[in-house]
Nucleic acid binder design. Structure first.
Lengths: 195, 195
DNA sequence: GTCTATATCTAGATAGAC
DNA sequence: GTCTATCTAGATATAGAC
């Protein structure tokens, strides 16, 4: 057994890596299993030996991305301290995701396939959106007097996500240019001054 | 591109109608020209006599939807009067779009295909998002003292769009339930109290 | 276990009948 | 002008070689 494979899951890793590149770049329907295999550096038959079919591979990939590759932004960050600084930090960190092309492509993919794969969209919400809302809501509950902290949390996150979607995903930079700092400044002012 | 006939062709209308149903339901890649023809009630050859290829048909459809079928929300609405009432009206009207499945599917389609068709995404931004931002910014400029009215406009619209996307498109209703009224109330309070 | 080769089907696009 | 029939390419999925 000198030529034994390193790890049975090593091939599965490469396949998922190849699948990620292809699905993120072209979406579900426009991605072929041939290209997944080629990108992963294995044969197509090997892909089918690890994953039942195209849908199973896609589902496995999305679960993986939602649970491992793109953990919630604030999961490990303990929010505490001055509200103005904390909120500015939160908004800025969320906006920084524009610099991660894979994350942006993941958003595009999930939204685009949310009709065909509603269950995968729910996994995305449960693993990424929900923890972000919960963490921010928790902070606002203990550091402000808002009647409805979750509503405020959704306003902040919504403003940021809308910015990313409009300016980056939908290529609005050239059509409706807008500086990130302006959004952050107004957002922090609006929320903190009121508190 | 096919030449736009002066008098609208009945056949072209039916084809676009069929294309709308199919593309909105399945996205670009998963939609076949066979099904477009069948839904439109014409032969596939007829489809190709009116539109050069699949991409041209898709582009014509998106332009049509962005320019005619889904005009900007506030284009015809003259915003004037008490800020609290106006902003509440604006937010509520925008949130009501969740009741229009075709509009929601259009959002999903544009976001999902924004990688493959960036120019169509820009058309969407130019015709729908930009006018909404501009109209609301204009109102806030004359009815509030905000240093950056456009930032406020984007915060309001972003909060609403994020709600629609998370709760409806991504099927978050069951995962992170939230009442629309709570969002509207906090949004209006936040913006008007500060003014 | 993995790959090559292939079966089967469906897609986009077109030629030719009427 | 419109439809039927068809071409060609590329898709998913699998059988069989090594």
């Amino acid at each position: 057994m000198t030529s034994a494979a390193p790890d049975p899951s090593e091939k599965a890793e490469r396949i998922l890596e190849g699948a990620m590149q292809e699905f993120l770049a072209h979406g579900y329907a426009a991605t072929s299993m041939d290209r997944v295999a080629k990108t992963a550096g294995v044969s197509k038959a090997t892909v089918y030996s690890y994953f039942q079919d195209k849908e199973s591979l896609f589902a496995a990939l999305v679960r993986r991305l939602a649970q491992q590759r793109f953990p919630g932004i604030f999961d490990r960050t303990i929010l505490q301290g001055d509200p103005a600084e904390v909120l500015r930090h939160v908004a800025t960190k969320a906006l920084d995701r524009e610099k991660d092309p894979e994350y942006m492509a993941f958003i595009r993919l999930i939204v685009g396939e949310s009709g065909r794969f509603p269950e995968l969209a729910r996994i995305f919400v449960k693993n990424l959106a929900k923890p972000a809302i919960a963490t921010l809501t928790q902070y606002l509950s203990t550091h402000s007097d808002y009647r409805d902290p979750e509503a405020i949390a959704r306003i902040l996150l919504g403003s940021v996500v809308y910015y990313l979607m409009l300016q980056e995903l939908l290529h609005g930079r050239e059509v409706v240019p807008f500086e990130k700092d302006r959004l952050v400044d107004s957002l922090v002012d609006l929320i903190v001054e009121k508190a």
